[in-house]
Write a protein that binds this DNA or RNA. Sequence first.
DNA 1: GATGAATGAGTCTTCATTCAT
DNA 2: CATGAATGAAGACTCATTCAT
Lengths: 212, 212, 212, 212
Amino acid sequence: MDFKIIVMENKNYTRVPKQERSRETKQSILKAGLELFSEKSYYKTNSKEISKRAGVSIGSFYMYFPDKKELFKELLIEYHKQIRAVLENIEIESYVNSGKRRDFLNYLINKLIEAHYIYPEFHQEINVMALTDSDFIKVNEKSKAESIEVTKTLLHIWKDQLRIKDIEAAAIVVQTSIEEIVHVLIFSKHKAKNKKIIDECTDMLSRYLFED
Amino acid sequence: MDFKIIVMENKNYTRVPKQERSRETKQSILKAGLELFSEKSYYKTNSKEISKRAGVSIGSFYMYFPDKKELFKELLIEYHKQIRAVLENIEIESYVNSGKRRDFLNYLINKLIEAHYIYPEFHQEINVMALTDSDFIKVNEKSKAESIEVTKTLLHIWKDQLRIKDIEAAAIVVQTSIEEIVHVLIFSKHKAKNKKIIDECTDMLSRYLFED
Amino acid sequence: MDFKIIVMENKNYTRVPKQERSRETKQSILKAGLELFSEKSYYKTNSKEISKRAGVSIGSFYMYFPDKKELFKELLIEYHKQIRAVLENIEIESYVNSGKRRDFLNYLINKLIEAHYIYPEFHQEINVMALTDSDFIKVNEKSKAESIEVTKTLLHIWKDQLRIKDIEAAAIVVQTSIEEIVHVLIFSKHKAKNKKIIDECTDMLSRYLFED
Amino acid sequence: MDFKIIVMENKNYTRVPKQERSRETKQSILKAGLELFSEKSYYKTNSKEISKRAGVSIGSFYMYFPDKKELFKELLIEYHKQIRAVLENIEIESYVNSGKRRDFLNYLINKLIEAHYIYPEFHQEINVMALTDSDFIKVNEKSKAESIEVTKTLLHIWKDQLRIKDIEAAAIVVQTSIEEIVHVLIFSKHKAKNKKIIDECTDMLSRYLFED
DNA sequence: GATGAATGAGTCTTCATTCAT
DNA sequence: CATGAATGAAGACTCATTCAT
């Protein structure tokens, strides 16, 4: 899924392959769900509204999703997929040997912000649901564990230069700090401050992880 | 509010002073609300259930609270009051001049954990509601701002010994990191790891804030 | 439950005991359900309509019955209770020794007609549901088995005068025949014929069971 | 209609005559409807499911039947046609003059059981629908009246040997008794008892109709 | 003819809130 | 003050039927 709307540019071409149309409909429901869950939260959004926003009937909604929860679940999975995609595109090579550890940390934080920016409000909503519904807790815990694992891997690359002893605990501290600061930055109203905060965060992590 | 149930010790007095009885009833509703919101979230708890758990009628519920939301609001305010109380009881004096900055940070984190432990699940639920309902967003933002303010004040005490320049940004980074790590610790399943994580966090903040 | 409507004769008397009112509401729903299920069948009756007929809100409906099915179940149980009551009031004594076996059979058939007349259409509907919903099949089978048991007991009374050998099989044949003929009579449009049919049925059973 | 699936034996002919194909499609829908209505009742079967079982699209379903009800109606008519066919094949001649009246009754009951065995569950479902939907009540009443008419005709054959006076009423009693006992036998779980029950029924009718 | 995606009226059911007692 | 029966708007979900392809 990509969250872009596929705008039909040519209404003259009559025949849209059935499968295509079908995919489109599902897309539009996913998109509407993403928007509304983000705007007003899961509990304040009802299926009628999602359908309306998607420009389809309620019947269609239930053709593609057995229930509202399932729609959320699909969005959740998609969301994590995208975050993962960003993390997997991180270019470590140029930093790892050049000793530009601080630059790397900066780059990492910015990448993560970018990843979460896809749909910041949905990020919130995910947290909400993850806390509310046992079905989502697992998905979220798994996702968090994976993030910590990625962090651990990254730390291992600088293994020899680290001043910290317990990589496991450090990974948790680092990952948690970054994640939450990214969160703050995304919702910050004073975007001006953001650069400063990123710099401080970079400084903090740099001092923590490495001997100067 | 304290969340303990006030057990009537004197059954002889048939007439309990109305104000007393009234306060009790309200207490029991608050307690029931706190418990249920924490256990099953705001949206999955209904007023009938709260009344039942509180041992009062639904009618009583609506005598003391204009609606369900107001009950949550009062709990929210009470919750922040308690966190504040913990913070206000922090004893800085013994640390500030002794140079035991690292010990202080450790003490601070432990104090915050203690503060949040009052009702960890409710802490979650607050986050949920804060994101869901615009009425609570303000309460929460205000609370966060105050926490950062407190952090700033604390940093000012060590003013001369700090290596950081931008106290404003540092306060945000420090407060956010601590808050979230506390969060992780509270819900951590591997309590064994917790001490290590606290130590790493202390180390990180210490290195960040102070020159060795 | 009795299916009579309790008409409030005196609206001036303000206080209707709560329990009384509550029972009344439930009564009116049961009555409405009985009527509508009989008139239009279970599947064509919806909860809104039942509530409307009962003069209460849908909310009330669901206060007293978890769902439509449960309402039907309660009516079913009540129905069988009433049939049983009629059977238990049968006066055998006056017939058994006088040798008026034929009169007794006649009396029995008439009693059963009376019993089923309480709500003939509901009798139909019971058959419908008993065939449609596995939950009701048991109730119905049990009820039928009990009827055959009663028939067997009756046959035992005339033990010495019976020409039949297999009382078990005879009880099934007799009970089934009566039941179905009663059914026919109830729905018969030519009430004039009914007496004749009862007489023929009596004759048939009499000849079958007893030596002349 | 016969309920057997017509397996296409000749795959060489790519083009199956349209009428043939068309009839086949309709057959498969009828078959699927019969099965599903019998298995789960009319109201719990939906058109999508019928189409699926029939291996055709919903669109096809609605090409052959204006609505779900019409499908049931066709099955109903077909069902009665088959019962009729069995009755019409009854061989009276060999019995009527030989005086084997009892054997004939036995044969008749067995024939009727055979007739209803075509799809016993559907027999049930017919009763359900006949009571539920006014459209089917007529079909059913007509069918019942015809059965009584056939019974009357049969009784007339033995006219001179009958001990009963009112053939009309007797026909009702006989037909109703047989019909219902057949019903009991079909759904009986204790098949062992069935022979005994048939014998008792034969005995009952024989004693009732004829002087020994 | 065939297809099956799309429709939306109609059901069941919940629950915050009121108000007569 | 206390009670809890009653309310009904609102939401989740189904399914017979249509119609563009």
